[in-house]
Design a protein around this nucleic acid. Structure first.
Lengths: 233, 233
DNA sequence: AATTTAAATGTAAGGATTACACTTAAAAAA
DNA sequence: TTTTTTAAGTGTAATCCTTACATTTAAATT
C-alpha cells in the first residue's frame, strides 16, 4: 500500500538507559557503549539501534538490550521520545528512550566485551554523544518516580539482599541519605519482604539478615487494592 | 549525508489528545476529528498528522493543534509513543501522543468546523480508529497525575472561575466525588488563588465568588521550594 | 415574611510522617 | 577470657496531614 506516500519517512531509533547497581561501591551505574560507527565513532553512547521494519518499539528495545547483555526478560519501560531535528549530526533521527533495570552480575561479560560496553558510574559519566545526557537525566527522574510507587528496586539487587543494601540502593537512586529506622519500618510494614535464616557476613561482624522480595504476596496484596509506596525521608 | 542509509525509515505521526472542560455539563471533552482520508476515512480520530522533515516532535504537535483550533500557546506535553507494527492498517506508522489542555471557549469555531472537528464527551466517546482508545486512556491517566502535582487545571477553565467550578473540574477528571470542605481547605491554603470582588450568579441565588489563579505568586513559591499538591479525597 | 437553593465554613479523630539515640551481636584484639 | 570494635537492629513521642462530617449564610423567589 502506498497510501501515505506524500509524507516523509524518518529514521527511528531506540536508546536504552540501562541502570545497574553496584552493591559494593553503592553506586548506580549505566551500561554504556563505545560507538562503533560514524558520526561520533569511538565516543560514549547509550545502547541504541534503529527500529526495524517488522518490530515494535518495545521489541526493538528488547532486541538492543539482548544484543548487549544477553538478557531476555528485563524490567524495562518507555521513558520519553526525542525528536529535535538536529539531535543527531548524522541525519535526522527520532529516538524513543527506554530505561531498563538489571542486576549487574547478570550480564554476559563476553558479550559485553565484544560489544565494547561497560558499566560507568552515574555520578562520573564520560561525555555522552548528542542529547544522551538529557535522556539520562530524564530516565533517572523516571526511575526515582518508579521506585517510589512500584517494587522495582529489587530488579537491581541480587535475589537475596540485606535491608542495609536495599536502603543504600534507595540512597543511591535518590542521591541523598534516608533515615534508617523509618526506612525499615516502612518497607517491612508492607509485608512483601521475606526474612531468611541466613546472614550476609562480608560487611560486618554481626552480620545482616538476608531478605527476599516475595512477588506472590505482592501480587495478592495488589489485587486487594494495596499500593506499594516507599516515601522515603 | 547518507550515513545511516542501510536502515529503514518509518512514517512518524503525532496524535493529540485535546482535553477541554465543559463548565456547564461538568464534563471532560475531547476534540475529535472526522478522518478525511483512507484508511478509515470518515471515522472518528484524534487530531493527528505526520511529522515533517524540518520540525521537531513538539513543533509537529503545535502545528497540528494550531491547524485545528487556531490556538498558539497551549499547555501541551508528550504522553507516550506507540509503535506496534500493525497499529495503522494503512502502513507502518509510529505515533507520538501528546496531550493538550485548552479552554473550550478559546477554539476558533469556523476553523474547527472546516476541519470537521468537534467536542465529544469523554464518557461517551464514539468509536475511535486504531489504537486511539488506548492513547486516550493513557493520556487521561497522565492528566490525572499532572493535575495532582501541577496547577494545570486552570488551563481548562476561564480566567475567572468559582471554587465550585474548580472542584467540579477535578471531579470530572478523577471521575469521582471529592469532599467540598477539604478541597477548598487544600487549594486555598496554597495561597495561589486570588479571590475577586465579583460573583458568578448564574447557578445560584447566593452567588459564588470568582477566583483566579495567580501565576506570579505560584512562580515565587516554586522558587522557594513549594510544590503544588492537590491530593483530593 | 417564609421558603428555597446553593455557597461557605470548622473541628475533632485518626493515621502517617518525622526526628532522634541506644542496644545488640559477633568477631578481633588485648 | 575480657575488652574493644563495628555495623545491625530497634521504639517512641511530637507533629503534621488527612479524613470524616453538618450547619449556617446569602440572596432570590414565592
Amino acid at each position: 500500500m502506498k497510501i501515505y506516500s506524500n509524507y516523509t519517512k524518518h529514521f527511528v531509533a531506540v536508546d536504552c538507559i540501562i541502570f545497574g547497581y553496584d552493591i559494593l561501591e553503592k553506586e548506580i551505574k549505566l551500561l554504556l557503549s563505545k560507538r562503533m560507527f560514524e558520526p561520533a565513532k569511538g565516543r560514549w553512547s547509550l545502547a541504541g539501534g534503529f527500529v526495524e521494519p517488522k518490530e515494535s518499539l518495545d521489541d526493538a528495545a528488547i532486541r538492543i538490550l539482548r544484543k548487549l547483555t544477553g538478557l531476555e526478560s528485563v524490567y524495562m519501560m518507555q521513558s520519553y521520545s526525542y525528536g529535535e531535528t538536529d539531535r543527531d549530526p548524522g541525519d535526522r533521527v527520532i529516538s524513543i528512550a527506554y530505561f531498563a533495570l538489571i542486576a549487574i552480575r547478570d550480564i554476559n561479560k563476553e558479550l559485553a566485551e565484544q560489544n565494547g560496553v561497560s558499566w560507568r558510574s552515574l555520578s562520573r559519566l564520560p561525555d555522552l554523544i548528542f542529547d544522551h545526557p538529557i535522556m539520562v537525566r530524564r530516565a533517572l527522574t523516571d526511575l526515582q518516580n518508579e521506585i517510589k510507587i512500584r517494587p522495582v528496586g529489587f530488579e537491581l539487587l541480587p535475589e537475596k539482599f540485606t535491608l542495609v543494601q536495599l536502603q543504600d540502593l534507595y540512597e543511591a537512586i535518590y542521591q541523598r541519605k534516608v533515615d534508617k529506622r523509618n526506612f525499615r519500618k516502612k518497607i517491612l510494614s508492607m509485608g512483601i519482604l521475606e526474612k531468611l535464616d541466613e546472614k550476609e557476613r562480608e560487611t560486618s561482624k554481626k552480620g545482616a539478615y538476608y531478605y527476599k522480595f516475595n512477588e506472590d504476596i505482592y501480587k495478592r496484596l495488589r489485587q486487594n487494592g494495596f499500593y506499594f509506596n516507599l516515601d522515603v525521608n
